[in-house]
């Protein structure tokens, strides 16, 4: 279970409030505006810590608890700061039977984080996806926007090396 991650520094600075105000003002008075606002906010800050959620809630007149409900409901949103690079391991049927599980175990072990986690040096975040539509290349690992095919646990170190 993912509980509100502690933010390392005070994220809600004057500048970030201004950025959020700008985002919110573009959606003023529109129905169902919370989703796009959260989306843009996450693009801006990389994640949605509780302070940001609270600020958005107050400015939009939505209960902060409801914002939390939405953020934790959608897979896309995260309350943990993301790393500079996101590793997505495919666990769709084809990748799964061809060893996707082993890859994820190795990554968890090497990086010392769980699925959804971020390394302390913020280099990598680890995620799981259900089929990238590239079953012929299974097992597949995606790092940022690059697809790496025919993955094996032993190939991982080399694959990740260029991502600093």
């Amino acid at each position: 279970m993912e509980i509100a991650a502690k933010t390392e520094e005070n994220i809600l600075t004057k500048e970030s409030m201004e950025i959020l105000d700008k985002i919110i003002s573009r959606y003023k008075g529109k129905r169902g505006a919370l989703m796009p606002v959260l989306q843009e906010a996450q693009e801006e800050f990389g994640y949605l810590p509780i302070e940001i959620q609270n600020y958005i809630a107050t400015q939009m007149g939505i209960p902060a608890s409801e914002v939390y409900g939405v953020v934790t409901f959608y897979h896309f949103f995260t309350m943990v700061p993301k790393g500079r690079h996101t590793i997505k391991v495919c666990l769709g049927t084809a990748c799964y039977v061809r060893g996707g599980k082993k890859i994820i175990e190795k990554l968890k072990n090497d990086l010392g984080i769980d699925i959804g986690g971020t390394t302390p040096d913020r280099r990598f975040s680890l995620d799981v996806v259900r089929c990238l539509g590239a079953c012929g290349l299974a097992p597949v690992v995606m790092v940022d926007n690059d697809i790496h095919q025919g993955m094996k646990p032993s190939k991982l170190d080399k694959t990740l090396e260029p991502y600093k």
């Binding site: 279970m1 608890s65 939390y68 409901f73 959608y74």
Partner: peptide
Amino acid sequence: CVWACREITGNNVLEIAEKGYDSHIEAIY
């Protein structure tokens, strides 16, 4: 409980957090 906390007491303490198997009632505030 979430609705009651929202509509009757107006305090919005509770929410259904997460989704699917992980969803649960949580006292967020």
